[in-house]
């Protein structure tokens, strides 16, 4: 395609390895060996991805801090928020990522994938807002943000303290990219982001390898604030954001690499190979040669049809 420039291909799709290996999601989450085998199986089937990700699990840090959880569907979901008092977080020690089994397992997965595949490996941590919502509950966090900015900042500072050692351990294990997952950030206005969140994201991203900030949903009004976030190199955004329009409307964004944003549900899961091809072509064309990372807008579901993933990869490779 005329005008199509270099772009990396990095779908957040290792969950498909679960399907390829015929294993259960639960075994993959709980066993580094099983998960590493699933990721390897995914890579065997789709060898041309540029960055491979482990199975996404946004509960790791909260589980490490003893939040109750249940396996629902394919991933553990935090089922209770044990900290009613934000000040209770002050007395908590940060989990040691080597000693805490939940974190250590994920560090081992990243090390195994990096060693066995020789590929760039992206690893996941949650961001401070998302961890805070897990620990306190979203409503409590919202009330705090609205009524006590200082306490809200203190909570985020504590969450940063809990997450950062884990992020560093993942980097030391061989992660080439660290994706900071902030699905709960979309609750808050850009003003709250600027006032209380941005500095924590910057502190978390500082010194990490190729930090990615991932925020789900319609983030168009947040983009200018995201663009100002130091240390974050990549912004991973959902399908609600038109990349080309966003780059045109937000000059500061040109300093970041955009990542995304094929809809994992409407296009990749529920669409046809034809729709996948059309959507990938349209995105690549709209970028007019500007560098970006072609990916799914968020995590792909394991029962995404493999022929849709094949259409994604074939179309991407044909355009590069």
């Amino acid at each position: 395609m005329a005008g199509a420039g270099p772009f990396l291909i990095a779908p957040v799709a290792s969950g498909l390895g679960i399907r390829i290996t015929g294993t259960e999601a639960r075994e993959n989450i709980l066993s580094p060996d099983v998960q590493a085998a699933s990721v390897t199986a995914f890579l065997d089937r789709f060898p041309d991805v540029d960055i491979v990700f482990p199975v996404m699990d946004t509960s790791v840090e909260a589980r490490a801090l003893n939040c109750p959880f249940e396996f629902k569907g394919r991933v553990p979901v935090i089922s209770g928020h044990p900290f009613e008092d934000p000040d209770a977080l002050n007395g908590l020690s940060a989990p040691d990522p080597q000693a805490c089994e939940t974190m250590a397992d994920n560090v081992r997965v990243v090390a195994r994938i990096a060693r066995d595949t020789g590929r760039p490996v992206g690893a996941f941590v949650v961001g401070p807002v998302t961890l805070a919502a897990h620990l306190l509950g979203a409503t409590c966090l919202v009330r705090l943000a609205a009524r006590d900015t200082s306490a809200f900042g203190g909570v985020l500072g504590n969450c940063l303290r809990f997450i950062r050692p884990y992020a560093l351990a993942l980097a030391a294990a061989g992660a080439s990219h660290i994706a900071i997952l902030e699905p709960q950030l979309i609750f808050f206005s850009p003003a709250v982001y600027e006032r209380s969140v941005r500095s924590r994201i910057e502190d978390l991203a500082c010194g990490l390898p190729s930090p990615i900030l991932h925020v789900c949903g319609d983030t168009r009004r947040h983009l200018a604030a995201f663009a100002l976030t130091a240390h974050v190199q990549v912004l991973s955004l959902d399908a609600a954001v038109d990349f080309s329009a966003a780059l045109d409307a937000t000059p500061g964004l040109s300093g970041k690499t955009l990542m995304g944003n094929i809809s994992p549900v409407e296009v990749l899961h529920r669409g046809t190979p034809g729709l996948v091809r059309e959507t990938v072509e349209s995105l690549v064309k709209s970028m007019r040669g500007r560098h970006f990372i072609l990916s799914s807008g968020c995590d792909m579901v394991p029962d995404t049809p493999l022929e849709n993933m094949e259409a994604f990869m074939q179309t991407a490779l044909s355009l590069r």
């Binding site: 409503t139 919202v142 009330r143 609205a146 979309i186 609750f187 808050f188 206005s189």
Partner: peptide
Amino acid sequence: TGEYFLADLIMAGE
């Protein structure tokens, strides 16, 4: 219209 965010909706409920 985008003036309020989800957090504001939750706060209104509160």
